[in-house]
Amino acid sequence: MSSTTSTSADQPTFRGSSLQLKNLCMAYGDIPVIRDVSLEIAPGTTTCIIGPSGSGKSTLLRGINRLHEPSSGGVLLDGEDALRVRPDVLRRRIGMVFQHFNLFPDHTALENVALALWKVKGMPKSEATERARRRLTEVGLGERADHRPRDLSGGQQQRVAIARALAMEPEVMLFDEATSALDPELVKGVLTLMAGLCERGMTMAVVTHEMGFARRVADQVVFMDEGEIVEAGRPEDLFDNPRSARLQRFLSEVL
């Protein structure tokens, strides 16, 4: 699925790393939320995670970059034990995109993208700005570099957020309902951008309610419920032949 057929010259390709979750468990206080989740994401592939509200999808993503520490189990990034790396260092290798964009409101689009390059990667300011500008151009916002988030549409804000994450040159990208807060006509643009990343070799874990996207773009679809993976496999298998009653029920509700 993630061949590099229609990659244009000015769109860089990525070197996505593999990601493995091994018997991952997570909890809020003493309430278990993720229970024994194992998952393998091959380099340069896209895994879509679907499931009802409250099933633990966001929590799982936040466990991968350790915004919330797993209570047991393992996360392997490119074969390395991610739980042994310093969280700050780990997160520089994993990009994350949020439902509500979380752009910095006091900064322009350009500054949003450049800030971490400059302050975290320690790039000289001019170089950081230069790279930020390129990333913005790649997501179609070269002209909007000096706008503040409030002067951008939701779709544009989300594309700035994607550019911000990509600028750090991550090996894996996590998307948590990246289009759920967008107006319907703007959803497509963001999804297309995401599909493009997938084609260009990024490794992605995408929590989404867009079943069309999952079916079209995903190499693997994972259905979660009550903190567990109920079913996982190729999109056509899951969508056309759901085996578990829970997935059948879920699909009948959302499709």
Binding site: N65, L67, P87, D88, V89, R91, R92, I94, G95, M96, F98, H100, N102, L103, F104, P105, D106, L115, A116, K119, V120, A161, R164, A165, M168
Partner: peptide, 27 residues
């Protein structure tokens, strides 16, 4: 300040202090 701001900083690899000084406290 919206919790998402700190979270976005953390996700970019900033440590807590940096995130507070650069993004959260000014807001």
């Amino acid at each position: 300040v919206d919790k998402g701001q700190l979270e976005a900083c953390r996700a970019l690899g900033m440590n807590y202090g940096r995130a507070m000084v650069l993004v959260v406290i000014p807001q």
